[in-house]
Each structure stands twice: as structure tokens, then as C-alpha cells.
Design a protein around this nucleic acid. Structure first.
Length: 718
DNA sequence: AAGTGCCAAATTTTT
DNA sequence: TTTGGCACTT
């Protein structure tokens, strides 16, 4: 309808073309910050406006969050929730479709091996069910076990890592691996093991082997959109091809310069081959950058121009700003952390919200020093990219109990729980699980098992828990409550030093579970798509600096970005060889630097602790030395006081006002005041509701409730 | 002699 | 937060 004219003005020519091409395959090559999300959002809106029913749209994104955000924005645009559009990750959509077609998934209790308890369990299973001679030495790493089982050993690590003393020749080793893989299938079915790749393989199998299913899926989803296409793997590309075989209405969006997931099987040639896979593809380039200022763009272009293989896009921006990216060579990690802390405090004084600042780094542990410094200065932070909520040990303990209620033959979960008992170790646990897996009723078998004198107390509590749970009504919230009562003493013993911090996770789990009415459904959901910790639950003031690995920062943006640890040996990662891996590291730096809107700081420590625990001098990352010196400004500590930094002759340029607008608090608004919203346009505030939301009557879109953390409202004067 | 507990050492990125 | 080596208990 007339929404078309309203968003016509907000898009440039290329974006508008992408939005309005409704038939046939479209490949959108999008640079960093080029309004990819916006283009997809408007396209969803455009299709629905044009009479396409929401059910016919399938939106595949990289994270579940991205899909949710796009649908939320599209819903706002249409004054409708868009809840009937199907959106999600490949995995969650696969799960949904497979469930609907009843194809393939036997057990739905999947897991990722993350800690010792699980690794022990796997080894026990291999020993008992495959009768392989496996000892600990042969499995030095949990990752390798996973990779062996999923058949992608050589992808993850050089084969040499896997050759152990017991193997005289590579061929012997290969035979054992093949044997393992052969057994893997039945192994999975027997023990309810499933991983991410299985889901995709099953989805693809559904499409290739069942013509009816393919027909139905293709007929239902007549408009398929894929975001971050450069991160898809070949199976995902095949799925897209098969799902769209009836109509070819596929629009994929991606940027080859941001391909950073090859270690996970992503093949960025997917995006280059797209026009061959879909003949008649219309290629649209999005080259205008809407995020960063020109000096930042100049530097990031410089980074990617050094790439061996690149597909030229000329990014330009109309955003004004003259601040060059700053490069700071710190004496050591402590000085680097001090630098970030003092700059963050200055920025805060200038009115930049902590939420608008991010610190990015290559590996999780690079931020350890900084975390300490931030803590001692009382600056709140939120770290992203570590473990997920359900991946931490204490969560897995609780989940193991719940999982067993759904599938009592889940030996890994039994193993895990038995190990929580004091004086009961891996050997005893293995004996017990062996008995349980042969029993008709594992819980009864557990109760009948003769307990050893030293551990009978803890064992009796575990038996009691399961007998109690079996008697209860299967209401997830209540079951979880009972589990937590059992877990509390175990938990306090296992994590004596830091259990108060972990306690909050458990409370959160309880609230999440309480919202389900079927336990099985909960287990299915968490297995595939672990819920993330809700940051709100951990903060008091709602303001926190973001610390994130570069990988988890993908697709996000901040006013001010610090990239730390840019030292030789840390970035690129020490084990990256020149060649493909090296190039991927370079793209990683490109992704990091393009997250910044107004200001970018690059820093590295000149001294690092080596493997021998001795400090050694290190240089800057080779990626930095390649840059032309004019694209950044060096920042030197003032000798007199190492905590104060001089910024050369340039007077500190105040950040442009949008920063401050984003920081509006509820008290800045009053009932009756006029505001402006990027989607809804002008409106009048009707009601303020605590803590950070307000009702606004928009002139063109009616009454909406907005949350200040999400909505970017501007107050219109007069 | 097997099994368990404890301390020191090292750690890529993740749907 | 996991892993490997060593001492201590059953």
C-alpha cells in the first residue's frame, strides 16, 4: 500500500531493486554495514504488502536472534507482528520440518561434548559398545572425539595430532577410524546421540528422498531468503537449491570479505557459485556503507585490499567524521587494559553509553587482564562468545537429570550424574552405567545397585531423587524445582569457591523451564538451540560494556570499538598457516574493524608471556604493518603519567549527537511530548511505564509500546 | 592395585 | 575450565 512510498525514500537504488525483485533468484553482494538487515526487513514487508501470505516466506539467518530481530522490525513496519513468517537458523528450521514430516530423528537428546564428564562417558560407551581398545591417551581432546565421530577429523586438525604411540602406521589408525565411523550410525541410534550436521543431512535427505515432502516444502515456502550466505556450508547450499526447486524465488545476501567460518565447514565459494546454481540470477551490489565514517572505512578497505583473493566492492559512505582510527602500542597487557579502561571512562564522561562501546579480541582468554581491570574500576561488562548458558558444567548437571526423565537410556547423562557423587569416580560410574543400559528399567536398576560404603550416601540421594521425580506430576517447573533441591548441596560442594555466581544461572533455568508445559519439548529446544543467558538478569544498572570475541560480534555494531591483542602471534592465530587460514584471519580483522561507527581503537601489547612463562617482546600483527601509515594515528602514552594519554595536536573531537540521543532515559520523556521514530515517524507520548518502556501514539501507525533499549526515539522540540 | 582426590599447567573461533 | 601427574584411601 502506501508504506511502499514511505520506505522507498529510505533505501538507495540497489537496495530498492533487491527489495522489489520478487520473482526469480537474486544474489545480493553486500559490503559491511551496507544495510543488509534493513534490505531483508523491507523485502519481507514488501512481499507481504504485495499480497504474499506470510506463511509463504522462509527467512534463514545465521543466529536465531538475527531472525527474531528482523521479524520484529518487519512487524513494526507493517503494523503487524509478522509472526506467521517462518524464520530461524538452518538447524531450527530443519528441526521443525523434520518434526512435521516425522522423518528421521529418533532420539532428540543431542549434546555437545564440552567437559570431562562427557568425554569420560563417550570413552566408556566406545569401550562397552564397540569393544575397541580405547585408553585415555588415545583421546587427548574432547574435540577430537567429536570430530572423529562426525567424520570430519582432517578438517579440524592435522592428522598427525591423532596418531598415538599405539599406532605404528597411519594405515592401522585409518582402519580404526573407519571402524569407528561404521559403528557411529548404530551407536547414535542406540544412545541418542545427534549433532548439528545430522540435522542438516536429514533435512537434505528428506528433500532428496521424499518427493512429496519436497513438493510440499517447495510449495509452502515460495519466497526463501538467506542471510550471511558466505557462511553456509555445501549441505546448506544444496538444501536451498532443493527447497526452491519449484519456483527459484531465492534471495541470498552475503559478503565474501566477511567469511570467517571455514573451520566449521563454511564454503565461501557457495556465494560465488550461486549464479551457476540458479541460472538467471540477478546480481545486486550494495556498496553504500551506512555505518562507519570515512576514515574507518579507509582503514578497513586497506585491510581487505591486501587480501590475496578478493572480489572488488567499492564501499563509500556519506557519514561525516574525521577521526582517524587510533593505534596504541602498549607496554604490556596490563598497560593495554589500563588504556582501554581510561578511554572508556573518558568516553563515558563525554556521554557515550557503555552499551555503545565494545572491546573485541581474537580468543576468549585475551580479555582476562582487561576483565580484572574493569572489575577493579567498577565498570560493568558483559562478555559474549564464551560458553552458552547450557554449556556450563553446573547447568549440564541439572539438564542431565531432566534429560533422563525424557530418555532414561541416556548413558551419558547417567555417567555425568554419578560422577557428581563424592568418592565415586569414572571407573565405578562406568560399571553402573553398563548395568543400567542392559536393564529394562534403569531407575529400578539403579535403586537395586549395591552401593559402596564410601559413596552410599550420595548414591542414595540420587536414587531418591529419581524415585521422587517419577512419583510427581510431569509439570516441568515443579520437576525442575525438585531437581534443584537435590542439586543444591552437590553444587555447593563441587563449586565451593564460586557457587553464588552460578546460582543465578540456575534460577534463570527455573524460570525458562516454568514457561514450558512439556518437558520433552524443552529438552528438544535446548539440545538444538541453547538459550542464552539473559544479560538483564545479571546487571543492576542495565549498563554494561560489551566484551566479545570477533566471531560473536559478527553482524553487530557499536559507536566505539576497541580491537585489542593485535600482536604478532595472537592475531593471526599462531597456528594459522599462510594461505587460506591466513586470509581468513585477515577477514576476521576486517570484520572486527567494520563494527565501529564513529571511532576505532586498535591496540596491542609489546610484551607477552610466552609458553615458557617468560615475557618476550612481540611486534604488531603483520596485518597492521601492511597498512599504509596514513590510515591511522599512533597514540603514545605520556611519559610523566602512564595513565594519561595524549592525542597528538588534534583537539578531542566530540562525538556526534546521535550517541547522546540513544542514551535517553525514561525521565527525559514526558506525557504529551513529541517524538520521532525511524520506522513509525512522528508521534506523541501517551504513557510512561517503568522501567524503560513507554506508550507512544504514532500519527500514522497508532498506539505502540516501545522499549527504550531497543527503540531509537528522538525527542522533537517544540 | 585399583580407584579417587588434589594441585599445577595450558587454553581458537561456534550454528 | 579441563587435563595430567602424583599421593592417598579402600
Amino acid at each position: 500500500m502506501n508504506q511502499l512510498s514511505s520506505y522507498r525514500d529510505e533505501l538507495n537504488e540497489s537496495q530498492f531493486q533487491a527489495v522489489s525483485t520478487t520473482e526469480g533468484p537474486v544474489l545480493v553482494i553486500a559490503g559491511a554495514g551496507s544495510g543488509k538487515t534493513r534490505t531483508l526487513v523491507y523485502r519481507v514487508a514488501h512481499l507481504i504488502n504485495g499480497g504474499v501470505e506470510p506463511e509463504a516466506i522462509l527467512l534463514l539467518t545465521f543466529t536465531r536472534k538475527a531472525a527474531q530481530e528482523m521479524l520484529w522490525r518487519a512487524g513494526r513496519l507493517l503494523n503487524d507482528s509478522c509472526s506467521r513468517v517462518t524464520g530461524g537458523t538452518f538447524h531450527s528450521v530443519a528441526n521443525m520440518l523434520l518434526r512435521r514430516f516425522g522423518a528421521g530423528i529418533g532420539f532428540s537428546s543431542s549434546f555437545t561434548i564440552i567437559d570431562r564428564a562427557d568425554a569420560e562417558g563417550i570413552i566408556n560407551l566406545l569401550k562397552s559398545s564397540l569393544q575397541l581398545t580405547v585408553n585415555r591417551k588415545q583421546f587427548p581432546s574432547k574435540r577430537i572425539i567429536v570430530n572423529m565421530l562426525s567424520g570430519s577429523v582432517n578438517k579440524a586438525r592435522p592428522l598427525e595430532d591423532l596418531i598415538f604411540e599405539d599406532y605404528a602406521h597411519l594405515s592401522e589408525f585409518a582402519e580404526d577410524i573407519i571402524l569407528l565411523q561404521k559403528h557411529y550410525h548404530s551407536f547414535k541410534i542406540d544412545h541418542g546421540l545427534m549433532d548439528y550436521d545430522d540435522l542438516l543431512v536429514n533435512w537434505k535427505r528428506l528433500l532428496t528422498q521424499s518427493p512429496e515432502a519436497r513438493e510440499q516444502i517447495s510449495a509452502r515456502y515460495r519466497y526463501i531468503m538467506v542471510d550471511e550466505y558466505q557462511d553456509t556450508n555445501p549441505i546448506q547450499a544444496d538444501i536451498v537449491r532443493l527447497a526452491a526447486y519449484r519456483h527459484d524465488n531465492v534471495m541470498v545476501v552475503g559478503d565474501d570479505s566477511q567469511s570467517i567460518y571455514s573451520f566449521r565447514g563454511a564454503d565461501f565459494y557457495n556465494i560465488m557459485r550461486f549464479p551457476e546454481t540458479f541460472p538467471g540470477t540477478r546480481i545486486i551490489k550494495l556498496e553504500q556503507n551506512y555505518r562507519s565514517t570515512q576514515p574507518i572505512l579507509t582503514l578497513t578497505n586497506d585491510i581487505i585490499n591486501n587480501a590475496v583473493e578478493k572480489y572488488t566492492k567499492t564501499l563509500y559512505t556519506r557519514i561525516e567524521g574525521t577521526r582517524k582510527p587510533m593505534l596504541y602500542a602498549a607496554r604490556d597487557e596490563k598497560a593495554e587494559a589500563d588504556f582501554v579502561v581510561s578511554r572508556v571512562r573518558e568516553l563515558r564522561d563525554e556521554g557515550v553509553g557503555l552499551r555503545d562501546i565494545a572491546v573485541l579480541f581474537r580468543s576468549g582468554f585475551h580479555s582476562f587482564k582487561l576483565e580484572l581491570e574493569l572489575g577493579s574500576h567498577g565498570i560493568g561488562f558483559e562478555k559474549r562468545g564464551g560458553l552458552k548458558l547450557t554449556e556450563s558444567a553446573h547447568m549440564k548437571d541439572v539438564l542431565a537429570v531432566l534429560r533422563l526423565l525424557v530418555n532414561p537410556f541416556d548413558n551419558l547423562s547417567w555417567n555425568r550424574l554419578l560422577l557428581t557423587i563424592d568418592k565415586l569416580g569414572p571407573k565405578t560410574a562406568q560399571k553402573i552405567t553398563a548395568v543400567l543400559s542392559d536393564a529394562a528399567d534403569p531407575v529400578a536398576a539403579l535403586a537395586a545397585y549395591p552401593a559402596g560404603r564410601s559413596w552410599q550416601e550420595g548414591f542414595a540421594r540420587l536414587v531418591g531423587l529419581f524415585q521422587d521425580l517419577q512419583r510427581r506430576e510431569p509439570i516441568p517447573g515443579e520437576l525442575c524445582g525438585a531437581v534443584l533441591v537435590w542439586y543444591q548441596p552437590v553444587f555447593e560442594r563441587l563449586y565451593a569457591d564460586d557457587y553464588p555466581k552460578r546460582q543465578k544461572d540456575l534460577e534463570q533455568l527455573q524460570t525458562i523451564i516454568a514457561s514450558y508445559d512439556d518437558l520433552r519439548r524443552f529438552i528438544d529446544d535446548t539440545a538444538l538451540d541453547p538459550p542464552e543467558a539473559d544479560p538483564q538478569a545479571y546487571r543492576d544498572d542495565g549498563e554494561a560494556l560489551i566484551l566479545s570475541t570477533i566471531h560473536s560480534a559478527k553482524g553487530l555494531e557499536w559507536e566505539v570499538v576497541f580491537v585489542i591483542g593485535l600482536a604478532d602471534g595472537r592475531f593471526p592465530h599462531a597456528s594459522a598457516f599462510p594461505g587460506e587460514q591466513w586470509e581468513e584471519e585477515r577477514r576476521l580483522l576486517y570484520v572486527a574493524a567494520t563494527r565501529a561507527r564513529k571511532q576505532l581503537y586498535l591496540s596491542y601489547p609489546r610484551e607477552l608471556m610466552g609458553a615458557d612463562r617468560r615475557f618476550a617482546r612481540v611486534g604488531m600483527s603483520p596485518f597492521l604493518s601492511e597498512l599504509s601509515p596514513g590510515s591511522y594515528e599512533r597514540l603514545e602514552p605520556r611519559p610523566a603519567d602512564s595513565n594519561v594519554f595524549s592525542f597528538g595536536a588534534r583537539p578531542s573531537e566530540p562525538l556526534p549527537s546521535p550517541t547522546k540521543k540513544k542514551k535517553l532515559a525514561l525521565k527525559d520523556f514526558s506525557v504529551g511530548c513529541r517524538v520521532n521514530h525511524p520506522f513509525f515517524g512522528a508521534g506523541t507520548v501517551r504513557k510512561l511505564s517503568a522501567p524503560r518502556s513507554l506508550d507512544v501514539a504514532f500519527d500514522r501507525h497508532g498506539l505502540k509500546t516501545l522499549h527504550l533499549d531497543y527503540a531509537t526515539l528522538n525527542i522533537v522540540d517544540g
